[in-house]
Amino acid sequence: MQDVAKRLDKAFQAFYRRVKGGEKPGFPRFKPASQYDSFTYPQGGYKLDGKKLKLSKIGDVRMKLHRPLEGKVKTCTIIQKNGKYYACLSAEVEPKQLPYCADAVGVDLGVRTLAVTSDGEHFKSPAYLRASEKRLKRLQRSVSRKKKGSNRRKKAVHVLARLHEHVANQRKDYNHKVSRGLVNRYGLIAFEDLNVLGMTKNHNLAKSIVDSGWSQLVSFTTYKAESAGRVVKQVDPRNTSQLCSSCGVVVKKLLKDRKHHCLCCGYVADRDENAAFNILKRATA
Rank of each mutant, 00 (worst) to 15 (best):
E133C: 00
V93Y: 03
R171C: 06
S142H: 14
F191P: 03
Q97L: 14
C262Q: 08
L188A: 10
K47S: 14
K281S: 12
G149R: 07
S144T: 11
T113E: 11
R141D: 03
Y86T: 08
C244H: 04
P95G: 02
V231C: 07
S132C: 13
C88I: 10
C101D: 13
T117K: 00
K6E: 10
Q97D: 00
H158F: 11
G44T: 14
V159I: 15
K24I: 15
A115D: 01
D3N: 13
R62V: 12
S241H: 12
K259W: 11
L69E: 03
P95L: 05
P28K: 09
F220E: 05
V268C: 11
Q234W: 00
Y85N: 03
G44W: 09
F123T: 07
V73R: 04
T75F: 06
P126C: 05
V143D: 01
K281M: 09
S132Q: 14
L139C: 02
L136D: 03
V251I: 15
N184M: 10
D108P: 08
Q216P: 01
Q80E: 15
L217I: 11
L182A: 12
Q216R: 06
S142G: 04
R7Y: 00
A161H: 10
H66M: 07
C244V: 14
R67V: 11
R258N: 05
R112G: 14
D272H: 08
K148P: 01
